[in-house]
Amino acid sequence: MSRSSADPLHHGDRPLVLPNAWDFTSAALLVDAGFPAIATTSLGVAAAAGLPDGRAASADETFTLAARLTRLPVPVSIDIEAGFADDHEEVADYVARLAELGVAGINIEDGRGNTELAEPERQADLIHTVKARVPQLFVNARTDTHWFGVDRESTLLRARLYAGAGADGLFVPGVTDSATLTTLVGATPLPLNTLYSPVGPDVDALAALGVRRISTGSALYRAALGAAIGLARSLRGDTGELSTAPDYQRIQAVLAEANTPVADPGPART
């Protein structure tokens, strides 16, 4: 599979619907269902390993999964959170290793620690460093201004800086209103990527607005968890409302609790 083969997928008659897998089998079944490209969900990959998302904790797990996914006959894009390192050259080294595997693209975000944003100029430098090292790789630059609800007024500035740094796509999750999407499409030469939302425009409406890529994020992974828990509860005989898909915050809370060290009770008293 050509490493540059992801880019033409953004220039068809309809947006690229890019489902996000969390392990090899979920990805393989999505390919079997006819999807022409596959991405990963950082939450799903981290959570499957018992690790929190957005904390640069799952670099090894992400790389291991990427090595498996490149066996599939479609382009693969890997979500690398913010790059799993603070040093830009170190991030570029990691991305270069992914490219050597045959990965077609990456998704890299300007969110830090699920609460803050990187300075736009520094994030642009990170994108430039990565593209200089691996120019053939499709770099989808994610800005979390709307996702976090922080510094939204900087979104268009970030879009310009990231495009100028060499990004190949712009991802702005958290936007569901048509007016803002229209503004974003007009403000960047890059294909605009949105995050699927059940309360947002449908695929036809997004296509009419000029959106070129629709990601599912963690929705598929969370739906799978909800279905599994619901089935388990029904087998136990629960008669109440069956489980729905757990939200992002719930999963992160469970992972945080699981990763909290147990306090040492001290020496036993006699």
Results as ranks from 00 to 15, higher is better:
86 D>N: 11
59 A>K: 15
14 R>I: 00
32 D>M: 13
59 A>S: 10
42 S>A: 11
46 A>W: 03
36 P>A: 10
64 T>C: 04
94 Y>V: 11
44 G>F: 01
58 S>K: 02
28 A>S: 15
14 R>E: 14
47 A>V: 02
25 T>K: 13
19 P>Y: 02
33 A>D: 15
13 D>P: 00
47 A>E: 05
51 L>W: 10
38 I>K: 03
35 F>K: 11
52 P>A: 11
29 L>C: 07
79 D>Y: 13
24 F>Q: 10
46 A>R: 06
44 G>E: 01
74 V>S: 07
58 S>I: 03
34 G>I: 03
23 D>W: 00
77 S>M: 14
88 H>T: 00
24 F>R: 14
23 D>H: 03
89 E>P: 00
70 T>W: 08
86 D>S: 13
50 G>C: 04
57 A>Q: 14
56 A>E: 15
95 V>K: 11
79 D>Q: 10
33 A>S: 15
84 F>L: 10
35 F>I: 10
94 Y>K: 12
88 H>K: 10
23 D>Q: 05
73 P>D: 09
52 P>H: 09
22 W>I: 00
37 A>I: 13
22 W>Q: 00
41 T>D: 03
51 L>Q: 14
37 A>T: 07
93 D>P: 00
56 A>K: 13
34 G>V: 03
71 R>G: 14
85 A>K: 10
17 V>W: 11
61 E>W: 09
30 L>V: 02
55 R>T: 15
48 A>I: 00
13 D>H: 09
69 L>Y: 11
71 R>F: 10
64 T>M: 09
77 S>Y: 00
81 E>T: 09
44 G>W: 02
32 D>E: 15
74 V>P: 09
61 E>D: 15
34 G>K: 05
33 A>V: 11
29 L>K: 12
22 W>P: 01
63 F>K: 09
93 D>I: 08
93 D>W: 02
42 S>I: 01
55 R>I: 08
14 R>H: 11
13 D>L: 12
29 L>D: 15
44 G>R: 02
60 D>W: 04
16 L>C: 05
86 D>H: 09
85 A>H: 12
24 F>Y: 15
42 S>K: 02
62 T>K: 08
80 I>F: 04
16 L>E: 04
95 V>R: 12
85 A>G: 06
76 V>H: 05
40 T>F: 06
79 D>P: 13
91 V>D: 06
28 A>F: 01
45 V>Q: 01
18 L>W: 13
82 A>R: 14
74 V>L: 12
15 P>R: 05
92 A>M: 08
81 E>H: 12
35 F>V: 10
78 I>W: 05
20 N>H: 13
22 W>F: 05
77 S>D: 06
37 A>G: 04
62 T>V: 12
73 P>S: 05
50 G>D: 06
85 A>I: 08
43 L>R: 02
44 G>D: 03
72 L>V: 11
53 D>G: 05
35 F>N: 06
50 G>W: 01
85 A>R: 14
42 S>T: 03
15 P>V: 06
84 F>G: 09
28 A>K: 12
64 T>L: 13
26 S>E: 05
46 A>T: 00
30 L>G: 04
54 G>S: 07
27 A>G: 08
55 R>A: 15
18 L>V: 07
69 L>C: 13
